[in-house]
């Protein structure tokens, strides 16, 4: 269903950080088609509105969403109690399309809440050992307290999973710095690598620039972009980025396509 939301029951709502929560959803009756990693749903908080939220976990018809409360609807969704219901439309948009990277080294670069859409990608890669080359996961966060999925990160990278923060207190023993600095530690053959990046657009551009500098071709760098979105069905016009309708042609876009668009101000 793409026009009218289907009821989903909230089965869990747990904190990830001070302003971010992860909710788990199960269809009440009819389920939406299966989502692919990188795709998004429109999640409706009763009477408040719906917002695009990427899938942070896919388990059959069960969906996981990680939501940061920064607006009226996202705050309402962060506040949903287990047992209540939300509305969900989808699946929408292009996915990461991991299978097309079979046999190649993988670099996953996540910044802040941008880790959420990459989580099912990491899980997809981990669930198919031998299908892909080396898996490198690079995670940047604001502070150690803002890190998502802390309990899961350890098992994620083969050979490398690095975490870095912008600012750290004395309890932090890990890396401090921008996420692109972690590329020094990653193990990959740039000419045979597919990279996936999601986070603030400035971070995405920096990551893509660094990957290009190291020899990863632009068409093998896939980024996930964000713009205002209302319908997700290509009818409302809000999510345009130049020639792209991001609800339809995105959110995952190859960097060779996106690069000339991201350099034009206010496009």
């Amino acid at each position: 269903m793409t026009a009218v939301p289907l009821p989903y029951r909230v089965t869990a709502n747990r904190p990830e950080s001070a302003d971010t929560r992860t909710i788990e959803l199960q269809p009440v009756a009819e389920a939406l088609p299966v989502f692919a990693p990188g795709q998004f749903a429109m999640v409706y908080a009763f009477g408040v509105g719906d917002i695009p939220v990427s899938v942070a976990g896919i388990d059959g018809s069960a969906l996981t969403h990680t939501i940061r409360g920064v607006g009226a609807t996202s705050r309402a969704l962060c506040a949903v109690r287990a047992g209540t219901q939300v509305g969900v439309r989808g699946p929408f948009g292009t996915g990461w399309d991991l299978p097309s990277a079979a046999g190649r080294d993988l670099i996953i670069v996540a910044g802040g809440i941008g880790l959420a859409p990459l989580r099912p990608l990491v899980r997809e890669a981990l669930s198919a050992p031998g299908t892909y080359g080396r898996l490198n996961v690079l995670v940047g966060a604001r502070t150690p307290a803002d890190l998502l999925y802390r309990s899961e990160l350890d098992g994620w990278g083969h050979p490398y999973c690095g975490v870095t923060v912008d600012r750290a207190g004395p309890e932090w023993t890990g890396n401090v710095g921008v996420v692109t600095a972690l590329l020094d530690q990653a193990a990959f053959d740039p000419h045979d690598t597919t990279a996936f990046a999601c986070g603030p657009e400035v971070m995405i551009r920096a990551a893509a620039r660094e990957l290009l500098h190291r020899g990863v071709p632009a068409q093998h760098i896939r980024i996930s972009l964000e713009r205002n979105m209302h319908c997700a069905t290509g009818h409302c016009g809000h999510c345009q980025l130049g020639p792209l309708l991001l609800c339809r042609d995105g959110p995952v876009v190859a960097y060779d396509r996106a690069k000339p668009l991201l350099t034009v101000r206010e496009l």
């Binding site: 920064v70 910044g111 809440i113 912008d166 710095g177 921008v178 692109t180 971070m203």
Partner: peptide, 13 residues
């Protein structure tokens, strides 16, 4: 450049 990027507090709310 890295320091300036972090100065932006990109991962802020």
């Amino acid at each position: 450049r890295a320091a300036r990027t972090r100065l932006l507090d990109l991962y802020g709310p």
